[in-house]
């Protein structure tokens, strides 16, 4: 009952109301998702902002906050992935320290354990890493990951399996 009411209410939102509501509920987690994929908060924020602007523009077609969230997630993941691919190309030509080297203060707040996991994640190919982030940070099901990334469920499975294998190896070594 309550849910029904809620849905009717939500679908009567105009684009501006939807923007504010979805922003309030999901902006932070989307930026964090982007930051995990890119390891660059500034760029992640830019990408998420662009996605919200795009969502606002097509609200008349989405008309549903759940769809809007799925749309945003897909937009953010796609943009992060293409940005990453670009960075890989750049990286090959210019060996450099990461632009987002965390400040000492931030680094101190991280536990050694997290450090190891994040370091290990960096060694993964882009698709495997994306699958892992969506699974463990996004808490998405295989089907949702497949939709978000535009790949088959079978590929999600195999990327996840390969990523798990490499991560386990790395993490066990380093203990």
């Amino acid at each position: 009952m309550v849910y029904e009411e809620c849905v009717t209410h939500e679908s009567s939102w105009d684009a501006d109301e939807a923007l504010t509501a979805v922003y309030t509920a999901h902006y932070t987690s989307l930026v964090r998702l982007g930051a995990l994929l890119l390891r660059d908060t500034g760029t992640a924020e830019e990408i998420v902002q662009d996605a919200f602007v795009a969502m606002h523009g097509r609200w008349h077609r989405l008309r549903d906050p759940h769809k809007a969230l799925a749309y945003l997630r897909t937009a953010v993941v796609n943009r992060c992935r293409s940005r990453q691919r670009h960075l890989v190309v750049v990286d090959k030509h210019t060996p450099r320290s990461l632009p987002d080297a965390p400040s000492a203060e931030q680094a101190a707040l991280r536990t050694a354990e997290t450090d190891r996991v994040i370091e290990a994640m960096r060694t993964l190919p882009e698709k495997q890493r994306t699958v892992m982030v969506l699974r463990y940070y996004g808490d998405l099901s295989e089907a949702e990951i497949a939709d978000t990334m535009g790949i088959s469920r079978g590929s999600v499975k195999s990327h996840a399996a390969r990523a798990t294998k490499s991560l386990r190896q790395l993490l066990e070594q380093n203990v």
Binding site: L109, T111, T114
Partner: peptide
Amino acid sequence: MRRAMHEEADRVEP
């Protein structure tokens, strides 16, 4: 994995 990613993500305050 879950703990590490959430911890890493929580450092980001947009």
